[in-house]
């Protein structure tokens, strides 16, 4: 039985003559002895006989076809296909076109938006002798200018107040000197008007306070032109001493410079 199973596995190869000489003899001998396996082999033979018939039928079908026309038919189809492929290629390009158009228009829109927003051609941006600075650097520049002007103002004020402090007796009061001093005070007041707005920043608050005190004092100095008497000078000198103005001016000057 085991042998039969082995033989049946080899039957197809035996029929197709794919076995070695040794195995062929082995199968042949078994087929002589075993009826069942022989029947199986017979069935296989019937199958191949029928397949042969089928093969013959196919060959008959092949012979009925007019093969002379086939090459020209195929060539016509190939030509049609080539034309169709060309059309498809053109269609593909046509399909691509809207995408390209969309991309180009998008680029144009972005470009126009940038131009409108920044207006690089505008005179405002390209005016001669003008340059662009950032807001922070502009603030820094403004601060340093204000600081310099304040220091200068305080120095001038200090000189003026020191001159005022020199008057020790009514004899020393000279109308011409008083007139000059009041003029200098007037000039300094005008000067303060220009940088007064710049003293708003926190770092210049102290300077602003003392500048305001000096300003009030300068109004009194201007008044001296009308009444150039020693009493009035004395009052101013007392305020200077009381408020320690000269000392404070010196301190702030050092702080700022």
């Amino acid at each position: 039985m085991r042998k039969c199973r082995k033989i049946r596995k080899l039957l197809i190869s035996f029929y197709l003559e794919e076995l070695s000489y040794k195995k062929i003899n082995f199968v042949k001998n078994h087929l002589k002895e075993c009826e069942d396996c022989f029947k199986e082999f017979k069935n296989l033979k019937i199958l191949f006989e029928n397949l042969e018939d089928n093969k013959r039928e196919i060959n008959e079908t092949i012979n009925t076809i007019n093969w002379e026309n086939i090459p020209s038919m195929i060539m016509r189809r190939i030509e049609r296909e080539i034309i169709r492929e060309k059309r498809v290629y053109h269609l593909k390009i046509m399909k691509l076109n809207p995408i390209l158009t969309a991309v180009i228009s998008l680029i144009i829109i972005i470009g126009i938006t940038i131009l409108i927003l920044f207006q690089p051609w505008s005179k405002k941006h390209f005016a001669k002798n003008e340059f662009f600075v950032s807001s922070s650097s502009f603030e820094n520049m403004e601060y340093s200018v204000a600081r310099k002007e304040t220091v200068e103002y305080l120095k001038q004020s200090q000189l003026l107040l020191t001159d005022l402090m020199k008057f020790t007796s009514p004899e020393e009061v000279d109308p011409w000197t008083i007139d000059l001093t009041s003029k200098r005070a007037k000039d300094l007041l005008i000067q303060k008007k220009y940088f007064d707005e710049k003293l708003d920043s926190l770092s210049l608050m102290k300077a602003r306070r003392i500048c305001n005190q000096i300003e009030f004092l300068f109004y009194d100095v201007i008044q001296l032109k009308e009444q150039p008497d020693f009493e009035n000078i004395k009052k101013i000198q007392q305020i200077i001493e009381k408020e320690q103005l000269l000392f404070r001016i010196r301190l702030i000057e050092k702080e700022l410079s």
């Binding site: 196919i58 079908t61 092949i62 076809i65 093969w67 086939i70 090459p71 020209s72 195929i74 060539m75």
Partner: peptide, 22 residues
């Protein structure tokens, strides 16, 4: 060369037809 291609078709058309027909 289209003539050569025609000849190639003639050479193989039956073989391919048999394969596909089977």
């Amino acid at each position: 060369d289209k003539e050569a291609f025609n000849f190639l078709i003639k050479l193989y058309q039956k073989k391919i037809f048999r394969l596909a027909y089977c």
